[in-house]
Simulated scan of single mutants.
Amino acid sequence: MITNENSFQLLPESFYKQPTLTLAKQLIGKILVHETEEGLSSGVIVETEAYLGALDRAAHSYGYRRTKRTEIMYHQAGLIYTYQMHTHCLLNIVSGEVGEPEAVLIRAIEPYSGVDLMMQKRPVKNIQNLTSGPGKLTKALGITMQMYGKPIYKQPLYITEGARIDEIMTGLRIGISNTEEARDYPYRFWMAGNSYVSR
């Protein structure tokens, strides 16, 4: 179904220049790859969330809030927006037009290659708990805040072509209950029936 890791085909910069909601859906089934000194590990993206910037109360950039943390969101699509939540680093892809601070959160992946390496970085008894959440997947892949601002279409952290997904589910985002009307936006997307989806 998916080509082997020796023939990963990087998604070009132009892929990310899609409307944010479209991009969030298009990323389902693609492969997130991280090359490190220890080796290469990857996973199929099975869940994403879209954040529509200035008009979205759940977005860090709501109301055009521009801080040191959100600065990269104002730049071109395809750059990496990492931020710290508690002890976790979360991975987002900048989307939308320059000056419109939107992004897509990579929420869960299904391990694809380098699983042993991922288990070293994040030991778990149940493999389905390895990457079934945004903080879990970054820990397992060794993604840190150092990736902030780097392009997702170049090594060492990049996204490639993957499988065609026949059914993508749509629903409410998770963990944003204090964001008034934004908590009801159907901006979360996931691969139907996949056991690595966070919920």
Rank of each mutant, 00 (worst) to 15 (best):
I2M: 06
L11Q: 04
L11I: 13
Y16N: 05
K17G: 01
K17W: 04
Q18F: 06
Q18S: 13
Q18R: 14
P19Q: 05
T20E: 03
A24D: 08
A24G: 05
K25G: 05
L27H: 08
G29T: 14
G29N: 04
L40C: 07
V44I: 15
V44Q: 03
V46Y: 11
K68S: 12
R69A: 08
I72R: 01
I72Y: 02
M73D: 07
A77I: 13
T82K: 05
Q84M: 15
Q84E: 13
N92W: 03
N92Q: 04
G96Y: 09
G96S: 08
A108K: 00
Y112T: 00
Y112M: 00
Y112W: 09
S113L: 00
G114F: 05
M118F: 03
M119S: 02
K121L: 11
P123G: 01
K125P: 00
T138H: 11
K139S: 05
G142V: 07
I143Q: 09
I143R: 02
Q146C: 02
K150L: 14
P151H: 07
I152N: 04
Q155H: 12
L157D: 08
L157Q: 08
Y158N: 05
G162N: 09
M169T: 06
G171S: 12
S177A: 11
T179V: 12
Y185L: 15
F189T: 13
N194M: 11
V197Q: 03
S198R: 13
